[in-house]
Design a protein around this nucleic acid. Structure first.
Lengths: 110, 110
DNA sequence: TTCTTTTATCGTAAATCTACGATTAATATT
DNA sequence: AATATTAATCGTAGATTTACGATAAAAGAA
């Protein structure tokens, strides 16, 4: 792999990180579960997924690292919920990047 | 790896596929270039990226496979442009999945 | 204290991704 | 026809991701 010798724009890195975090059906399913509850839920996530507990924990970690969910662990229980602010930030970044959408579209396109 | 024994919702697969396609700064940079031109551009993409031609071609292929860009190859030249319809579809799916955003947010959250 | 429950972490195997140089393919150009 | 240009494809090395079982940790219940 190339030694990351050149760069992209900051916004590009950020959007890539965000989309990478949700680029897996299991993680989207987790977000769905959290969104439906719209409150902190403790456990119950593993039950709704076709994955081993360790794997779900791993996915949760990924989502948390990306800032998409918030979680408070207290002893044997963990509570997770969606970090809506992060999603709003993403929405903004996404729209900024592709603001042309819904306005002008190329007519002379393939 | 588990033998994919269980599934997620169709919408979850689709959104995951979409986000996976743009989960890389190089591919977002490509989309940016295309969005700025807002018309078919032939080549010029490699020049704007810190990657080898083969790698860029690979990324273009990924974007095309995901349906995010359209491309017409004619001999030694290739023309690419953004498939805006796909982006609108994504926007829809994304908002569907997280429609709670901007409406009710959990007060009793972590 | 000992057991149970819940979840994170460790170690690891297999799959996928990312990058590259080299080559091939398809046209233009000379 | 021979050469040059442009971009796709091939083969491949190394990194990352994804999944799992096993284990550890943390706290409540017995």
């Amino acid at each position: 792999m190339k030694a990351e010798r050149a760069q992209y724009a900051k916004a590009e890195y950020e959007l890539a990180a965000f989309t990478k975090a949700i680029a897996h059906p299991a993680r989207i399913a987790i977000l769905n579960i959290l969104a439906k509850h719209n409150t902190c839920i403790c456990g119950q996530i593993v039950d709704g997924l076709p994955l081993a507990q360790a794997t779900v924990s791993q996915h949760l970690k990924a989502l948390k690292n990306a800032g998409l969910i918030k979680g408070s662990v207290s002893g044997p229980k963990s509570c997770y919920c969606i970090n809506w602010d992060a999603f709003e930030a993403f929405k903004l970044g996404f729209n900024q990047l592709f603001s042309q959408l819904n306005t002008a579209r190329a007519a002379n396109c393939c």
